[in-house]
Design a protein around this nucleic acid. Sequence first.
DNA 1: AATACATATAACTAATTGGTTATATGTGAA
DNA 2: TTCACATATAACCAATTAGTTATATGTATT
Lengths: 108, 108
Amino acid sequence: MPDVYRALGDSTRRGILSMLKHGNKTQKELVKAFDISQPAIKKHLNILLEEKIISESWDGKYRIYSLNPEVLQIAYNEVHQYIGELLDNQLVSLKNYVEKGEFQDELD
Amino acid sequence: MPDVYRALGDSTRRGILSMLKHGNKTQKELVKAFDISQPAIKKHLNILLEEKIISESWDGKYRIYSLNPEVLQIAYNEVHQYIGELLDNQLVSLKNYVEKGEFQDELD
DNA sequence: AATACATATAACTAATTGGTTATATGTGAA
DNA sequence: TTCACATATAACCAATTAGTTATATGTATT
């Protein structure tokens, strides 16, 4: 189960994903686009690979990276549903609170 | 700018939020619900507070925690839009790839 | 005033993260 | 085959995280 929060929890990684959405990129292109070293970029790529958000392949001496849309879709659904549920019910209980002034009281 | 990825990036914190969606809770109730120590729970609560996802107040000797639906809504919009954009364009470029076999080639 | 108990905080540990520099490896071109 | 260069990996550092135990603080109750 890929951890989307881990994958998206860093702005460099989000930047990488935003670049990849415009088409596959070589590692060299990604390194050039950010102000950090090649090994640092590779570590971010490794995290995205671990979480299965991207794939890598070879093209001669170039490493090619691409998004995995299916996994992204699953991640999207997961986050969407989790936060969505939190929000819906919270609006209901906010409404209850305002209307009835009640809150949970199961102390001891 | 609250970091929603940090806030939601831990399953205990997501569990806490899920409890709070059913109504405000005391710290004691939250501690009882998880299998970790009171200080550990308090640390999670502090992170959620730092990211403004929840609020705390006093009720006698009890600490009361509640969701901040407005901040959650902003978080939701942010994540929703970011991943949504990634997905849309990726579907387009996937389509291009399948149809034309092309991928980015701006080496050197 | 003394006790009980909810909460806060301090000090510690182990693992992870985000970065670095230095160096090794592998492929393509001269 | 040698050189250039894209990538991989190792060793290191500082900060953060997720937990622990021990202890202090503050409020309520007796």
